[in-house]
């Protein structure tokens, strides 16, 4: 055959092409199964997470069970006025921030410290077994943890009072004392989660190039110096991201644990927004009022999360989700 020179540009053709509609039909014919896989998930999301968002309107309504969500009359911001006039709610809001703040201050550095310390352990057996132990409480339910706390701090039988007794102190009824609630709650949280949270930092440390340490050894640096000059600067981005995440989730106090540990005597320092909502809404049936508190909470949380996400995107070019 002869050599064809097909260099002329052909931009369009005379062949009939399927229309846009036909292409979509073709696509669905060929890919319908993908949509069939997606649909259950979407329906679930709509039914269990998005429908409640529609239900949030009761925060602006005088909701009654008999009329239902849609038919209940609008009352504007009345619930919010009541809310901010309510001493209990303001107290709950304050407690939420205080507890979150202390949890952050005392709870945040702990896993970093643990990771740095684990990193110095050369004995693999020791390291593995201690890691196994400190991760464990993360997997234990809050009911059990609360049960342990209640037992350990009980005035007559509890080990804490037993030990205090050795030093001649009178037993303290810890869980009924408002001033003890926060230390116990925050301490329990750290005890339960610090070990597990250290995994993130250990992973970051594992990613540091060994050549950095090798050259430091050649330069005669001590382990302490290497920790400050190499390890910590290397994991600083991870630390910052985790900090941003934590600030984004500032309002997420583990209220389940609070419900398990608090009692009317300690509401003063223990009651947070979600426990307030739980009591007002689910226990006393003031759904609309409690929903208003929940909406307020959700909006603040959303702003915090989005703010945190955009900050982390800007500074680390990795978004959190």
């Amino acid at each position: 055959m002869t050599v064809e020179n097909v260099d002329k540009p052909v931009e369009t053709s005379s062949f009939a092409q399927p229309t846009r509609v036909q292409r979509i039909v073709d696509h669905l014919k060929r890919e319908w199964q993908i949509y069939a896989m997606l649909i259950p998930l979407v329906i679930w999301l709509l039914l269990f997470l998005y429908k409640p968002m529609y239900g949030l309107q009761i925060a602006f309504k005088d909701y009654s069970i008999f009329r239902g969500i849609t038919a209940s009359p609008w009352i504007g911001f009345e619930h919010f006025h009541t809310l901010f006039g309510s001493e209990q709610f303001v107290r709950a809001l304050r407690n939420t921030f205080i507890i979150s703040f202390y949890t952050l201050v005392f709870g945040f550095p702990m896993p970093i410290l643990l990771a740095l310390m684990f990193n110095e352990v050369l004995n693999q057996w020791f390291r593995k077994s201690t890691q196994t132990i400190v991760y464990l409480p993360h997997f234990i339910s809050s009911v059990i943890i609360a049960g342990i706390v209640i037992t350990a701090f009980s005035p007559s039988a509890g080990i804490v009072n037993t030990v205090l007794g050795w030093f001649g102190a009178d037993p303290i009824y810890f869980l009924t004392k408002p001033e003890w609630f926060r230390p116990i709650f925050i301490g329990t949280g750290i005890w339960q989660e610090a070990g597990f949270q250290s995994i993130v930092y250990l992973a970051a440390i594992a990613g540091v190039s060994p050549t950095l340490y090798e050259s430091a050894v050649v330069d005669g640096a001590s382990r302490w110096q290497m920790m400050w000059k190499i390890t910590i600067p290397s994991i600083l981005p991870t630390i910052l991201i985790m900090l941003i995440i934590r600030i984004g989730n500032l309002l997420e106090v583990s209220f389940e644990m609070i419900i398990l540990l608090y009692q009317p005597a300690t509401y003063e320092t223990a009651d947070v927004v979600n426990t307030f909502i739980y009591r007002q809404g689910l226990q006393s049936g003031q759904y609309d009022f409690a929903a208003a508190a929940g909406l307020f909470n959700a909006v603040i949380a959303f702003i915090l999360v989005m703010g945190a996400n955009s900050i982390s995107k800007r500074y680390s070019r990795t978004s959190l989700w």
């Binding site: 050599v3 020179n5 097909v6 260099d7």
Partner: peptide
């Protein structure tokens, strides 16, 4: 995105179109 030339290996080797 275009064909420059089409042919047997020898044709292309001997007679490149461009």
């Amino acid at each position: 995105g275009r064909i420059e030339q089409l042919g047997t290996p020898m044709e292309l080797f001997l007679n490149p179109a461009n």
